[in-house]
Amino acid sequence: MNLADKKRLLREMLFARRFEERCYEAYVERKIGGFLHLYSGEEACAHGVLEAAKKGQDYVITSYRDHVHAIKCGADPKKVMAELYAKETGSSKGRGGSMHIFDVEHHFMGGYALVGGPFPLAAGMAKAIKMKGDDDIVICFLGDAANNQGTFHESLNMAKLWDLPVLYVCENNLYGIGTRIDRSTAVIDQYKRVSGYNIPSTQEDGQDVEKVFKAAKQAVDHVRSGKGPYFLELMTYRYRGHSMSDSNAYRSKDEERMWSNRDPIIMLRDRLIEAGELTRADYKAMDTEVLDEIEDEVIAFAESSPEPRVDELQKYTLAENDPWVFGGGR
């Protein structure tokens, strides 16, 4: 990773943070409805891993905490915000919402709200890639709590059995909604849980984007070389509650402070400043630019976009005019 890459990543992560925090405001203003799960604090995970992937080519799938993964894959932040605003111009035309961002053109295959739901979907996409003989891979991001679902075990078993090109990334933020991992999970280190399936795995600091990138590079190379699945556990922390309806009363201030001292954006910023590659003024200017872009372009687009039409309520339920429904159109 060269200096330009690091500066770009800093800006991308800062953009992600400001985007998510602006979502928070819009939610409080009731511009965004439903459930809203924010990624603030976990930015180094998606950015470090996807930096090691082929952008727009490798397939990415994740949970309901999905805005930042979509944007990093290449989704237009304006369309993501418009989706949160439930507008027709949104990435899912206002039908999906925060938890269901999709951008198939950039191979972001969606956010799914059933915890653990994407595990087998990711393995299936990997099966398709393998059948076609392509060298793309699938990257599936899920949280630690998803590993207590049956789909985790069923999917890891099949992924290894058939050596499918899928990288499972566990963003371990230590909480399943409001329950701390040691109160829900017998084995705390998630990377150890996959050894029963003979899948190689590592655990890495999820707050340091350079370490994440390095670990992800190794993982991505392993999967792309045809050796089968890999499991990467990233230790991270979310600053906000599980969702906006979460009181966030289950965590101590000391714990929150400890993690905010290891903020992924600040860590990278300070490293660049110490190396003499960035000044505080540069960072301030970058932040202003990001805030302006979000306000003037992203929010403005979402605000001014039209709502979906009620007479198109049933559109997208089934395929339209599929000839095979009527016996091949005969």
Partner: peptide
Amino acid sequence: GLGIGASFL
């Protein structure tokens, strides 16, 4: 689920 994922592609 694996079959569904394969059908996506």
